[in-house]
Amino acid sequence: MHKVVVFVRDGLLAMEFGSVHRLFGQARSEDGVPLYDVVTCTSTPGPVRTDADVDIYVTRGVEELESADTVIVPASDLDYGPSRHDVGGLLDAVPAHARIASICTGSFVLAAAGLLDGKRATTHWNSADQFRAQYPRVLLEPNVLYTHEGNILTAAGEASGIDLCLYMIRCDHGSSVANRVARGTVVPPHRSGGQAQYIDSPVPRTTATSTADAQAWAVANLSEPLSLEMLASKQSMSVRTFTRRFTAEVGMSPAKWIVQQRLHRARELLENTDYTIDRVAAEAGFGTATSMRQQLMADIGVSPSAYRSTFRVVH
């Protein structure tokens, strides 16, 4: 069983801690077998203060890091102080094969340990300036939800920590498992890491200005050619107005969003059907298997056939 170790510190952000346990703890195989063993450790076992009005009592120490397959470092309300530097060296105990992830300002710990030097990373948008000043060797991307560089992952904030956990579950076990976990926690099954983390007006003031109808229509018609003109017409908007409002609502351009929806559809079909690769490409709107292969390789680094052989759901 894949062992997930949550490394917590005094001042722990309780929401991030709970989300990690809830999401990985819900992941099950088709037969209902748990897929992850989730444990919590800290530098000195005992009570750990949280940002809420309760403490948690942690019985496990840092020796748990030595057998981890995944280590997750949630944020602490002390991440702006010197204490974060005191724990960075503890991550040296993590096995070379394991992945290490941070949520929100937990990225400061990874940076202090030197794990982010020369790598893409993100942190909470409100901490970006301080992070950049302290760790100039990190390729900070302050406007994305999460990043994945080799075996190092970073998430921007509490909610994007949920996205990152679902992303890791999807990488490990495919969309079907990740989607079941998402449904169980009533959260969206997938938000791309490149999506903007901070949008001034994420919810339109009135339904008249929303592009939701166009989005729903596009998802229902992914197998067809989709143009900006067609999407804009569904909202009775000009292409320029539609593009501006869509980007403001979703955090990315319509073209990029469509590609992501097609990739999501392709992955579901590869996992859950016996369709040929050519048919999957057609159903997802890529037109040709070559086009789908190029997009899938760019997105997750594997071919459609390799993805199917890894994540095919046998009913």
Rank of each mutant, 00 (worst) to 15 (best):
E249I: 08
S210T: 15
Q197Y: 08
V187W: 00
E229N: 11
H264Q: 15
D213S: 14
L228F: 05
A232L: 02
S192R: 06
Q235T: 12
P254Q: 04
S210A: 15
W217P: 00
Q261T: 02
L231I: 09
W217V: 03
L263Q: 04
T276V: 06
K234D: 03
Q260W: 04
S236Q: 12
A218N: 02
Y275L: 15
S210Y: 07
E224P: 06
L231Q: 03
V250Y: 05
A255D: 03
L263H: 03
D278C: 09
P254M: 03
A232M: 02
T209D: 08
H264C: 12
D213G: 13
M252E: 12
P189Y: 03
R205H: 12
S253I: 05
L263P: 01
E271K: 06
G194A: 10
I258E: 00
V239H: 07
M230V: 13
V203L: 12
A220S: 09
D200E: 12
E268H: 04
E224Y: 11
Y275S: 13
A255T: 06
N221C: 05
T207D: 14
E249A: 12
P202Y: 06
N272C: 15
H264S: 15
P188V: 09
R240G: 10
R244S: 12
D278S: 13
A248P: 00
R265F: 00
F242D: 00
L226C: 08
H190V: 05
R267T: 04
V250Q: 08
R244D: 10
S192N: 10
G193R: 00
V239P: 04
S238D: 11
D213N: 13
L270A: 07
S238Y: 08
Q260G: 09
A212S: 11
T247M: 10
S227L: 03
R262A: 01
D274L: 11
R244V: 05
A220I: 01
H190C: 07
A232G: 02
A212N: 08
A220F: 02
P225I: 07
T207W: 14
Q197F: 10
D213M: 14
F242S: 02
L228R: 09
T211W: 00
G193S: 10
T209M: 06
G194F: 02
T243K: 07
L231D: 00
L269F: 00
L222V: 11
T247E: 13
S238P: 04
M252W: 03
E224G: 10
L222Y: 10
I277E: 07
Q235N: 12
L263S: 04
K256T: 14
I277T: 10
D278H: 09
R245N: 11
P188A: 13
T243A: 11
T273Q: 05
M237G: 06
I199R: 12
E268V: 05
S210Q: 08
L222N: 09
A218E: 00
S253N: 08
P204H: 10
S236M: 11
R240E: 14
T211E: 01
L270P: 00
G251L: 02
S238I: 06
D274A: 11
L269W: 01
V203R: 11
H264N: 13
D213F: 13
A212E: 12
V203Q: 08
S227T: 11
S233Q: 15
A248N: 04
I258V: 13
A266N: 05
E268S: 06
R265K: 14
P204F: 08
D200K: 11
K234C: 07
E224A: 14
A214T: 01
P202R: 07
T247C: 10
